[in-house]
Design a protein around this nucleic acid. Structure first.
Length: 156
DNA sequence: GCCAACGTTGGC
DNA sequence: GCCAACGTTGGC
């Protein structure tokens, strides 16, 4: 089983939206590296952290489960969609999405600020300068370390 | 709102 | 295939 971290802007789609929906599409991925992970590596049963980006206090806020294989993101074919891409051909789709299911919120948000203070997490792409991947793999060690943080009072 | 970093586009 | 211009991401 693989672990992931997936970013979303809470103003657009936050953990509360997923909780309400229970299961939803994770669509709008328009980056090749992220696309490849969705299409080739994500499997039902994988777990992912839900990360709030581009907000006052960026943080990991919850856990979700991947519940589908990657499959073509048909929002790319619809001119009325925000993420319409005229170059994605339905016969040879360029973009993919997965379905995700709400598992739970974390007891407390684990902020980016706090993550930066943990030496074992320094290798996470999330914490590396200039990295803008919206979906990234998380090692089992990193996953468990972050869940340990959840049990502790915030360090900072 | 600013701006660094980085991906994409398109002229040549 | 190079690379400048442009657009986007996302922390601050």
């Amino acid at each position: 089983m693989n672990h992931w971290l997936m970013k979303s802007e809470p103003d657009v789609y936050g953990i509360d939206d997923l909780e309400k929906a229970s299961t939803d599409y994770w669509d709008g991925i328009r980056n090749y590296q992220a696309r490849n992970m969705i299409r080739d590596q994500m499997k039902p049963g994988d777990l992912a952290f839900f990360y709030h980006s581009n907000t006052k206090e960026p943080a990991i806020v919850g856990i979700m489960e991947i519940v589908s294989e990657g499959y073509p993101d048909d929002t790319a074919f619809d001119p009325n969609e925000k993420y319409y891409d005229p170059k994605s051909d339905p016969a040879n789709p360029r973009w993919y999405r997965v379905d995700v299911r709400f598992v739970r919120k974390l007891r407390r948000p684990i902020t980016l600020r706090e993550l930066k203070t943990i030496p074992e997490l320094a290798d996470m792409p999330l914490l590396r300068r200039g990295n803008r991947l919206s979906i990234m793999p998380v090692t089992p060690e990193q996953w468990h370390r972050i869940l340990q943080l959840e049990e502790q009072a915030p360090a900072a």
